[in-house]
Nucleic acid binder design. Structure first.
Lengths: 336, 336
DNA sequence: AATTGTAAGCGCTTACAATT
DNA sequence: AATTGTAAGCGCTTACAATT
């Protein structure tokens, strides 16, 4: 700390602007000068001051990420580190850093985002949370700030947002169809919070597949889970109070894990008495008893594509917008 | 974007310095002036430019976090989101943001840290990775930059580093002792990579407990696992090739999950043929078959304490240093 | 003594001018 | 035409001066 462009300039016997140009490797500077300046930089241990650079150049090199709120249970889902990995992979190449603004609740979240954006700490934002409220999206949209959402902003009817998502209706259909093809008769479903589009869509896919197979959906075999394993456990218990489905579609592996436990606690064995299928293909799936059939949703790719779209959006400007849909792949194991 | 302190000054009919003081709620400004200036700020939609503030005030409001490298398998361990939650919880209160520098490998990691620090993008750093090489620690130490490590820097012999950790020798002792008390005879162990202090320590605890009980440790029943479930699976298989221990200590639940599967694949049932115990008390533990006995290590608290120490270190200066040791708590379930 | 303003400076970038 | 320098400016902070 302390060595500035001026010190280097003096040492290399050039003007500060020349040093600045050498730092950015400008073609306007001759090779000999560059050599001399770089030499001086090395000798003095010069490092550009990022804040000064940002102030003058108007870009920060930072991308803001809105994770689910750390207070929410969502935060602990393996999806997020995986998506974050994907984002990191591309930001790394472009020499950008990630800025996280810790927020405990919805109000803080909105304020955190506004501060990040309005105080100029980031060049763009990725909204990595299905619960992300329309509010954040519409606001960013309205001020024309670069952002991309991981999830489907379809209900907002905004034409030019960048987004990346799985085809969750398709995934709902896929897992339901798989059970149907296996010959299961009465197929129930455990969804997550139905204020999330991802859950609405997977449920919709389930309904479509059931209908296409000429099966009626039975409300007694449908339950909305709240939080992960416990939520899945309780939801399954509620279903079992109404009767015994032959199989159960679950919109998330963590729900499936809870549901399986509930079945077992009621004396049912998986997959013989009840088949169970999940979504996400999380790490433990193949080590569960029985190994859980699931859908790989490619969270890493989701993150990667999101970062790529955002970078393009930043570079090209508001006239750019695009979306990427990533298809799931069923991973067959033995739980159904 | 666009509204500066000067615009507000003009609108409120004061000087820029007055506006600046109002922003920081300086006691040197009268209530009436504050009111008037704030009014103007609201009307114009003023937001302070964070970069300019940082440039002049010499602090950024950002804390850098070195997560394990996203390319490493470690990155996907539930420990990290949990520790991150704890860090977030305290940074939120102090209105600080988190800066992550994506790094794919060791070299990039070092460069990322150096850039973060030397370019002045952060006021302090938390090293959240047991593999974090001494190099990073000793460097930060040598330049007197505020940092805290989650993990035990003991081998470096640096006197004044801030750190936070479990007592991993104690944890190793605790889980081994638990098996001994349960009457298990031949107790093996699956450790992780022994270049990590956490693993060395837990192994040490195991040895201490065995010795104290007058049991000899059997190299045939000791294995080093590489990556998580698969690593635990393979390690257990290697042990079973040498014979059948009556129980196995595992330094991580993910290893335990793999190990249990390996036992089952060889026809052994848990806990009747082989007892298994893990460490970390991850979310799925109680939903496993059988539910896994483990040790709660309070990753959230670890993160929280780390952030608190770091903030103090930043505020007070290099003469401050402290460490926090968080004790594990055994969570009894049915796997042993 | 309490309140406000002046002006320099933080460390860069970049339009424009100057030099060869 | 190729290379370098001058100087203003980015949006703040803060020591010091000035005013009441």
């Amino acid at each position: 700390m302390g060595i500035t462009i001026k010190d280097v300039a003096k040492a290399a016997n050039v003007s500060p602007s020349t040093v600045s140009r050498v730092v950015k490797d400008s073609p306007r500077i001759s090779q000999e000068t560059k050599k001399r300046v770089r030499q001086a930089m090395r000798e003095l241990g010069y490092h550009p001051n990022a804040m000064a650079q940002s102030l003058t150049s108007k870009n920060t090199g930072n991308i803001g990420i809105m994770l689910p709120r750390p207070n929410d249970e969502e935060f602990n889902h393996p999806f997020f580190p995986e998506a974050l990995r994907g984002i990191s992979a591309v930001l790394r190449i472009h020499d950008r850093d990630i800025l996280l603004s810790p927020a405990g609740n919805e109000v803080e979240e909105r304020r955190a985002l506004q501060r990040m954006v309005l105080s100029g700490k980031v060049d763009g934002v990725v909204l990595l949370s299905s619960r992300i409220s329309d509010e954040l999206i519409t606001w960013l949209y309205s001020i024309n700030f670069p952002f991309v959402v991981i999830g489907n902003p379809r209900p907002l009817g905004l034409e030019r947002v960048c987004w990346v998502d799985n085809d969750n209706i398709e995934i709902g259909r896929m897992i339901t169809q798989y059970l149907i093809d296996k010959g299961y008769e009465d197929i129930g479903i455990i969804t997550g919070d139905l204020r999330f589009i991802v859950n609405i869509d997977r449920l919709e896919g389930y309904k479509q597949a059931m209908e296409a197979a000429g099966k009626s959906t039975n409300r007694a075999y449908m339950a909305e889970a709240d939080v992960w394993e416990d939520g899945g456990y309780n939801a399954m218990l509620r279903i079992l109070r109404n009767g015994k489905p032959s199989a159960v579609v679950t919109v998330d592996d963590l729900f499936a894990i809870g549901a399986i436990r509930a079945c077992r606690d009621r004396g049912y064995s998986i997959p013989y008495d009840i088949g169970v299928i999940g979504v996400n293909n999380i790490g433990v799936d193949q080590y569960l008893m029985p190994p859980l059939t699931s859908v790989e949703i490619y969270a890493y790719e989701l993150g990667k594509s999101a970062a790529e779209l955002l970078l393009k959006r930043i570079e090209i400007g508001p006239e750019y917008n695009d979306c990427v849909i990533i298809h799931g792949r069923l991973v067959e194991r033995v739980s159904c």
